[in-house]
Design a protein around this nucleic acid. Structure first.
Length: 839
RNA sequence: GCGGGUGUGGCGGAAUGGUAGACGCCGGGGACUUAAAAUCCCCUGAGCUUUGCUCGUGCGGGUUCGAGUCCCGCCACCCGCACCA
């Protein structure tokens, strides 16, 4: 403890080895302690750990270490989401095997994670590409098949011509593949599907109980599931036909002044013999498919010769073909209520259709004109016959009841959520365990023949699925009749791998996917931390699998993740110059740029570069900082401290060299303070003792609320106060407390100091206890205000009476000068806070 | 266009309706040193007629003794999107 500098190059590795040898972070399922499961979204082994991983895992690590100190048996595992396209892309580009490439990346990234000193239980590590993992997944898939949750159907799929694979609806972004960015084409294929829609209602209901999930994620899932309740009914048409429409606002039915059908609606198609109609239909197909484009596009319609009879008024409504109606939703036809739907309003205005008010803020204002836009809000129904005077909600029900009684319509719930297509025509994924037999049809692989493993000898020199081309792999005998048959060559979407991995972390028997009793000990995950990009797909699928497994009686867990936290990104400035030849920017990496003066210059030629916005670190913008280089220079604790400092964890964290240097300085500052620890010091410092206990309590509360930036600020404050204090027993106690407070965040420094104090591993030490009596100050500062403006402050004993505080305030010269003899009308006293004089 | 989020010093950000700017970074001044690094101390929202006062939390209103915080109406930026009727 006599070293003047803390040397992370030596200490980091020493304590990482000590934890590993002691098995400190190995979770014991049989422990008597209360259990806590802390999980961060496991990484895809792309090759290198990036700062986003470091931030994510540091947050989880602080929670895991803190909860250990609070007496919990903590499960904090790590593994690899190892199947996926990048491995096949690497295979195609570099001629390596996807498995070899993935394994190499895992080894490299594991070493990186270990250098940061995360409190992980590596004994439970697995990669989803291990046959020991995906074999169990195949078993679960067969169970789901037996339970009727898996089916095949011929369907139009999104075909990505670059990646040569099918994409889920959810994976198509703006009509392009979410990874390749290629324009998606439509193709018909026989596909495997999971019946997520069976659980739509339950998935929606469950959101209401997830109180520790961010509101925005719950909202996004709610919108994704998209439950809408309304009325489906048919208009009688003038040509003798019927026009089924679906509406969520049956209460406004008396305000309907037209009907609109999609351009590809059968009725529109039947009219396409007319060249004008055909031309209009063609025009509708042009233009962008993006929501934003379609929404802002001008509303266009073509009035047909057909009319529709209003079910109540009997009026003949014109039927239009319109560009804002989509065939994919509802019935592909709507009733137009211009007064209470903005699109209908714009359409009616353009084509001179009646705009009738049928909802008003009160009945007296039934004739109030519209102010240039539709009114979609709540109110009272007016000008609507038997509905007049009803609330919107009551009127909806009343219309549905009438329609059902009259047999011309019925209440209907419509979901946006569609079943999950899991087939992928790709090699690097979980083989779907089925066999196609000409005689027996589609036959499940018997469970005792699992896992169906991927063949190693495959090539990637030609696009497409290597399993399809393999000379022998797909040729097997039918398990039922024994005749020659073919293996299914589709593999499962990688989202299936991440839909149950948290269960395998909790329990990993050899012969089954998991042991329900072991799972029950750990689940649900107490804190799940990851990026907002998984707000819908991964989190919804994991919730679905959990429900499916519970439905089959395999587990008794309602929701997999009790609390969810979505952390912000790590960002950095961008540096660029515009290439005059191409007009496009050329980016430079931070290490190529001199940022020490006000402006930024390129080290190579000392000429200026443009400093761009602070955005997410990405290879294409070159604004990345490699964690390894930073750790080598400043040590793991400084990097961890930086990840927790300043920015609230849910917001973006701008990386800066000055910031990490400040963190490294603080590590040394703490080291110096800790080195001055004197166990023999005597004497009491009540004020420091209070500060110490207040800080212990506040840091605990901050960590539990994931307010790491606030905890960091409090540790800075206590450090400053302790440095300034004269030696005393209280000061020595403050130093010991600080070692504990720092332990979850800067574990290497804390262990080094703790060992120097002659103690064991601080990772095993309990969180310091707090004396409640020391949490309150005996003296408080009282603000003295005149008309709400601060005029003076005085100190008073805690709990002083209102009269005493008022007297103190009136004695203030500053206050008296401000009041200037005016009559005092009122005195407001907030005990221990302030006195406000009102004149 | 719709849904969600954010907006506070030069920067990241604190602040149960009660002293706005804690804490950190940057910057300035000083101490120590032959010198530098490191370290330590002080200052650091703007303005003014400076024992103190005025203004100040995106903009405009409102409620209140008192508003960054609550209410109404805007603006800007970020994220998401499916014209779901």
């Amino acid at each position: 403890m006599t070293d003047t500098r803390f040397d992370p190059a030596v200490a980091d590795e020493r304590w990482q080895r000590a934890w590993a040898e002691a098995g400190t972070f190995t979770a014991d399922s049989d422990s008597e302690k209360p259990k806590s499961y802390i999980l961060e979204m496991f990484p895809y082994p792309s090759g290198r750990i990036h700062m986003g991983h470091v931030r994510n895992y540091t947050m989880g690590d602080v929670l895991a270490r803190y909860q250990r100190m609070q007496g919990f048996e903590v499960l904090h595992p790590m593994g690899w989401d190892a199947f996926g396209m990048p491995a096949e892309n690497a295979a195609m580009e570099k001629g390596v095997h996807p498995g070899g490439w993935t394994r190499q990346n895992i080894a490299q990234m594991k070493a990186q994670l270990q250098r940061i000193g995360f409190a992980l239980d590596w004994t439970r590590e697995f990669a989803t590409c291990d046959p020991e993992y995906y074999g169990h997944e195949q078993a679960l898939f067969l169970d789901m098949f037996a339970a009727g949750l898996v089916y095949r159907k011929e369907s139009t799929v999104n075909w990505d011509p670059v990646d040569m694979t099918v994409l889920a609806n959810e994976q198509v972004i703006d009509g392009k593949g979410w990874r390749s960015g290629a324009e998606v084409e439509k193709r018909k294929l026989n596909q495997w599907f999971l019946k997520i829609t069976d659980f739509a209602d339950d998935l929606l209901d469950g959101l209401g109980k997830l109180e520790d999930w961010p509101e925005k994620v719950r909202l996004m899932q709610e919108n994704w599931i998209g439950k809408s309740q309304g009325l489906e009914f048919s208009f009688d048409l003038s040509d003798g036909g019927k026009l089924p429409v679906y509406t969520t606002r049956p209460d406004t039915i008396f305000g309907a002044s037209f009907c609109a059908i999609a351009a590809d609606h059968p009725i529109a198609q039947s009219l396409a013999g007319d060249p004008d109609v055909a031309a209009f239909i063609e025009a509708c197909k042009r233009g962008g498919t993006k929501a934003a484009e379609v929404e802002t596009a001008e509303k266009l319609g073509y009035q047909t010769s057909i009319t529709a009879k209003h079910p109540f008024s009997g009026a003949d409504l014109p039927v239009f073909i319109a560009n804002f109606v989509l065939m994919e939703y509802g019935t592909g036809a709507v009733m137009g209520v211009p007064g209470h739907d903005q699109r209908d309003f714009e359409f009616a205005t353009k084509y001179g259709l009646p705009i009738t008010r049928v909802v008003a803020s009160d009945p007296a204002r039934a004739d109030e004109p519209f102010k240039g836009e539709a009114e979609a809000g709540d109110g009272v129904i007016v000008s609507s016959g038997f509905l007049d005077g009803m609330s919107v909600e009551d009127a909806k029900q009343a219309v549905i009841t009438r329609a059902e009684a009259g047999g011309w319509g019925e209440g209907r719930t419509v979901w946006r959520l569609r079943d999950w297509g899991v087939s992928r025509q790709r090699y690097w994924g979980t083989p779907i365990p089925f066999i196609h037999c000409d005689a027996c049809g589609v036959v499940p692989v018997p469970k005792d023949q699992l896992p169906v493993t991927l063949p190693e000898d495959v090539g990637f020199d030609i696009p497409g699925n290597p399993l399809e081309r393999h000379p022998t792999w797909k040729h097997v005998d039918c398990p039922q009749c024994g005749k020659p048959a073919r293996r299914e060559t589709d593999t499962l979407d990688t989202f299936t791998n991440s839909s149950w991995y948290f269960l395998r972390f909790a329990s990993q028997p050899e012969d089954r996917p998991f042991d329900p009793e072991e799972v029950a000990k750990w689940m649900p995950v107490q804190h799940y931390i990851g990026g907002i990009e998984h707000a819908i797909l991964h989190l919804l699928y994991a919730r679905f699998w959990t429900r499916a497994l519970a439905h089959m009686g395999q587990i008794e867990v309602a929701e997999p993740f009790a609390a969810l936290f979505t952390q912000g990104m790590v960002t950095h400035e961008t540096y660029s110059r515009t290439d005059p030849a191409r007009g496009a920017p050329v980016f430079f990496a931070p290490e190529e740029v001199d940022r020490t003066s006000d402006r930024a210059t390129l080290l190579a030629d000392a000429a200026p570069v443009d400093v761009g916005r602070v955005i997410k670190m990405s290879k294409s913008k070159k604004n990345v900082v490699d964690p390894d280089a930073i750790i080598a220079r400043h040590g793991a604790d400084a990097v961890r401290w930086f990840m927790l400092s300043d920015s609230p964890p849910e917001r973006d964290l701008p990386w800066s060299d000055a910031g990490i240097e400040g963190c490294a300085r603080f590590v040394q500052r703490l080291w110096r303070l800790f080195s001055a620890y004197d166990p023999a010091a005597t004497g009491e410092d009540k004020s420091l003792e209070r500060k110490t206990h207040q800080t212990i309590a506040a840091v605990a509360a901050d960590i539990e609320a994931l307010g790491f930036n606030k905890a960091v600020a409090r540790i800075y404050e206590l450090t400053g106060a302790t440095e300034k204090a004269a030696p005393s027993a209280s000061r020595s106690a403050a130093i010991r407390a600080l070692v504990h407070l720092a332990a979850p965040m800067m574990p290497h420094l804390a262990e080094e100091v703790w060992a120097g104090m002659g103690e064991g591993l601080i990772a095993d030490a309990p969180w310091p206890t707090v004396d409640p009596a020391l949490l309150v100050d005996d003296e408080v500062t009282i603000a003295i205000q005149h008309m709400g403006k601060l005029r003076d402050t005085v100190t008073a004993p805690k709990g002083a009476s209102k009269d005493a505080l008022e007297a103190l305030a009136l004695a203030s010269a500053n206050l008296q000068r401000s009041v200037d003899g005016a009559a005092i009308r009122k005195v407001i006293v907030v005990p221990d806070r302030l006195v406000n004089i009102v004149t």
